[in-house]
Design a protein around this nucleic acid. Structure first.
Length: 264
DNA sequence: GCGACAG
DNA sequence: ATCTTGTCGC
């Protein structure tokens, strides 16, 4: 009834090799036909997952699509399932990417007109020990522009959460909404972002796939009503609500198949 | 060796 | 990730 325990070193090695292999396809500049400044960007997707506290292998994945500039919801879909892969820092994609890809693929198969032009992912992009987090992983496999959004900082290349918060407090930065995350190596990994100047806890935005950091930050700005960009926030709230409503029946079914339910 | 470590 | 109400403040 629980997820698998510790993984073999071989598995981690295989996963590392898979990340390094997929990383060769990563594109970190704007690779799309629409223009941010125009009204050609209409459909922004968001994905998130919630988990049962009784059985952490029971999960609900949610994909939403919001329409710009109103940020109104035009699509949402869920998948309820049992996960058999544990969460290991640096390997989140192997736990969450399969079901999220399935939700995207279903939209594509249905030729749904609201298929997202860009996807916001709860989890990092290149802000990752090997420069290939969940947002990159999803972007490459779905061949879709993606943006990574972390609610906590994954400590990479000497980056440190409290230091980022401190630099937002500096007087020279008191009017800054964005702080570039430059590691000890001199590489830029992403930005710390605060939706309001009074926000104490920033979010961390990094390039996923087929987008530049500058464009990624602009899209986050366009979709941020609260701390977390609205597409991810909607996917978060809806996956949590769906889980709480249905988990009783799910906990009773040891071998329940993944079930999709589209509503819109 | 020890601690840190997206969700 | 998950638990969890009210409450203080703009």
């Amino acid at each position: 009834m629980e997820e698998e325990g510790a993984l073999s070193e071989n598995q981690l090695k295989n996963w590392t090799e898979e990340q390094d292999g997929l990383k060769k396809k990563l594109i970190v500049y704007d690779d799309f036909t629409w223009k941010l400044s125009s009204s050609m960007l209409k459909y922004v997707g968001g994905v998130d997952m919630s988990f049962s506290k009784e059985d952490s292998s029971v999960a609900c994945a949610c994909l939403v699509v919001l329409e710009l500039p109103s940020l109104s919801l035009v699509y949402h879909d869920f998948s309820f399932l049992r996960l058999h892969v544990p969460y290991i820092p640096g390997f989140l994609a192997f736990r969450e990417a399969p079901v999220l890809l399935q939700l995207l693929q279903k939209m594509k198969d249905d030729k749904n007109p609201f298929y997202p032009q860009v996807l916001l992912v709860d989890g990092n992009g290149i802000l990752h020990p090997r420069g290939f987090g969940l947002a990159c992983h999803l972007g490459v496999l779905a061949n879709l522009p993606t943006i990574g959004v972390g609610k906590n900082l994954h400590h990479v290349d000497g980056l440190n959460q409290s230091e980022v918060r401190r630099s937002f407090q500096l007087k020279e930065n008191e009017h800054e909404q964005v702080i570039t995350l430059v590691g000890n190596s001199g590489l830029t990994w992403g930005v710390g972002f605060r939706p309001t100047l009074s926000s104490l806890k920033p979010i961390y935005v990094s390039v996923g796939h087929r987008i530049s950091l500058d464009s990624a930050v602009n899209i986050v700005k366009m979709t941020c009503k609260y701390r977390v960009p609205e597409p991810i926030r909607q996917a978060d709230m809806r996956s949590r609500a769906y889980l709480q409503k249905h988990q009783l029946s799910l906990l009773k079914e040891p071998e329940l198949q993944p079930t999709d339910q589209t509503e819109h």
